[in-house]
Design a protein around this nucleic acid. Structure first.
Lengths: 323, 323
DNA sequence: CTAATATGTGAATATTATTGACATATGGTC
DNA sequence: GACCATATGTCAATAATATTCACATATTAG
């Protein structure tokens, strides 16, 4: 039974590894399950195709029907769950985005939609709509989420920030950064920004590292060091003066924000209301770029980068004049 | 996920106990699974209704869709498995019926259908078509198999037999039975026959007991004692003279034989071929009653019972003149 | 009332799935 | 063409989950 889930995920993603990610297990689990299913039906369903898998004819035949049935199943459960609490709207979101973007703004949604009981589920793991009881998710990634309706929300820019009260005062030249503690988060790197600013500096390997980008911002606000900020996580910190923007070089993030939900939920009024609200909020922020209007503390000398179509390039870095 | 299976079975059977039987688990397992599912969706799905369960509105809504999806799932798997080995026909039968009815006759099916690879799966447990890879089953029971296509095959009669070479020779009068070892099987009782024969004798509590009715017959053939035979399990033993029929009292069995299969398999040529063959075989045996033409060794004096519509009465015993 | 038949539930147990470590295979890169 | 990065395959060890067992509770028939 769970073998069918594993098989369907593998068929959908075309990869045991990606199927494993989608189901929050290791590729070994998927492999085992598919082997068991194949033994059960007596045919090979997937076969290795170079660096990945390919469905056999039998697998192809099975995959579609299994997907339909599993979707029916999860839709049926979701609908019953929905009826049980028709006011609930479960939103899955990353903890950092929740803390620094969604929660500061969420008041207006709650005020405008008093008939919706919002349930914000912050998790570092991608919600599985087939399994988790989630109505809608905000995801930060490539935008490739098979089987789900995906709406692009906004893009991000990286630029350095620090507290105006940082020990020794904010750096004045990019070169000064070498003398400051550089705050880091997993999976976000300083290198692209260094390169864009014309600095020949390796990726920092010392100093604190956080698995949650919002904690990096919090540490910067506390004056712990210099952070590489994302526009989406800046909030009012520049306007309030609790953070200052350093230099005028910005680097586009290679990942973007998306609103995703199962196609079967597209008609839900709660889902539509939330989507409309979040798009309105983003428009008000100029797609998250409003924060960049704050004047930088100094220039890098290098040409700055900003406001361009999101970077699909592997490096995630492009050069284009700003303003 | 397996919670949905449990819930569907409970909804289908209207009872946790019967659902548990269908899934070959205890009622506790079903209860736990349904509780977990209810916690997940946030509504009660089933509620206790006296001695049994009743679905709530939410449960009712969910049950139908879940059943459909699960059936789709198992059909999809079955079809792929079918294509993998299009010649295979998996028949689930009870071991006793397999040994004493099906196997002696199966040669003609194999001969007439050389393109079918027959796979006889003998098991004391009822096959679960949703889970087990079975095409068709022969069941001995009440005929109430929800969700399955059921065709009545034949009825059974009970009457005593023994080896002509039994120590001391076969009993001459019913009263003589008291001096013989009475062979017993689980869930088959002498009492109804005693009553019909006008004997005031309690159910035997001593002597060997077998969990497989065919073993009772085998023991009788070996001269171990007197058995209460069923017409369906007699085979050629009366004609061959390895067993003799004692007295002329017969008692109809309250259970009957049925051919069952999932509705989705009704169109399968293999299933239709097997069904046609087995009905032909049964007709040739006069619905299993041909063996009764063998003259009994003696009369009981009591009026004998036979050839009547199967007994739905609780006692399983009815009185009606024979011939 | 009692016996018989159900469901409900918690702790112990059995079963099953998953992991982690390593092996094997493929394709792109210098 | 060797190397490295990226996959899948597979084993025994482990973790997670379902199931059982024993007993409690509830209902109905007689």
């Amino acid at each position: 039974m769970s073998a069918l889930r594993a098989f369907e995920a593998a068929a959908r993603t075309g990869s045991l590894t990606r199927a494993a990610e989608a189901l929050h297990v290791t590729h070994g689990a998927i492999s085992h399950q598919i082997k068991a299913l194949e033994a059960d039906v007596g045919v090979r369903l997937v076969e290795r195709a170079g660096r990945g898998i390919r469905l056999t004819d039998a697998g192809e035949r099975l995959a579609g029907r299994v997907r339909t049935a599993l979707t029916d199943l999860s839709d049926a459960v979701r609908e019953v769950s929905e009826r049980a609490n028709p006011r609930a709207l479960r939103v899955s979101v990353m903890p950092s985005f929740a803390a620094r973007w969604l929660l500061p703004r969420i008041g207006s949604f709650i005020a405008e939609h008093p008939n919706v009981d919002l349930d914000v589920r912050a998790s570092v793991l991608l919600a599985d709509f087939r399994r988790d009881d989630v109505d809608i998710a905000i995801r930060y990634g490539s935008g490739n989420y098979p089987g789900l309706t995906v709406e692009h929300l906004m893009d991000d820019m990286y630029f350095p920030v620090c507290s105006p009260n940082i020990a020794g005062g904010p750096p004045v030249t990019p070169d000064d950064l070498k003398r400051y503690l550089l705050l880091r988060s997993e999976s976000e790197f300083w290198q692209p920004w260094f390169a864009a600013a014309g600095l020949d500096v390796p990726e920092p390997t010392r100093g604190p590292i956080f698995n949650d980008a919002s904690h990096v911002m919090q540490a910067a606000i506390e004056g712990q060091g210099v952070a590489l900020a994302r526009t989406s996580l800046i909030g009012n910190d520049l306007a309030n003066g609790v953070l200052v923007r350093l230099f005028d070089t910005t680097v586009p993030a290679s990942t973007r924000y998306f609103l995703v939900y199962p196609p079967s939920r597209a008609g839900s009024s709660k889902v539509r209301q939330f989507g409309a609200w979040i798009r309105k909020e983003i428009a008000r922020d100029d797609g998250g770029m409003a924060v960049l209007r704050a004047k930088p503390r100094a220039t890098t000398g290098a040409r700055s980068r900003s406001r361009q179509p999101p970077a699909p390039s592997p490096s995630g870095v492009r050069t284009r004049a700003r303003r």
